[in-house]
Amino acid sequence: MSEADPDAALLARMAQGEEGAVRQFVGAKLPRLLALASRLLRDRAEAEDVAQEVFVRAWRQAGRWRSGQARFDTWLHLVTLNLCRDRLRRRRGVVMADPPEQADTAPLADAALAAQAQARAVAAAVAALPERQREAIVLVHYQELGNIEAAAVLGVSVEALESLLARGRRALRQRFAQEEGADHD
């Protein structure tokens, strides 16, 4: 990749032991990586474990990162994705009817309840997609990775990424249409 890595200066400051750079790095990356793990695993505690592990690896690599080959952010996404895949694989070995969801027991207004129900419906629909389509949609729609970065994380061409996205989005549209049809019956 010829484009300069936007994280290069920050990584250099971290490698020199600058604590302000560490805080800035955590502030910038943690919300994104935790969101990625949360959406792939749908379990907050597990997602936090994964995010922590990613940062441990990031601390090890930051000083050795060679800018110009790939973006550090792309590498962080790849590590997060692989750790989530490992956990999902292990989870499949354990009998589990539904992925654990955190139930919020606080009383909510009608609008908030409706929003929560809608969010759960979207989460369930995305979770029901085939693995590669789900990953493509989470990386591109939710993480807002560029097509080249997302394709690099998934190890596919941009054309293959677009195909995964289109199939995933089509399946989601169909599912939502069916759900709306069922609600109106």
Binding site: V26, L30, A35, Q52, V126
Partner: peptide, 19 residues
């Protein structure tokens, strides 16, 4: 429709743990 699925941000305690 997809944007309806939001996830809570990290807690300040988690940020501090990582630093």
């Amino acid at each position: 429709r997809l944007d309806a699925w939001t996830v809570p941000p990290p807690t300040p305690a988690m940020r501090q743990r990582l630093v």
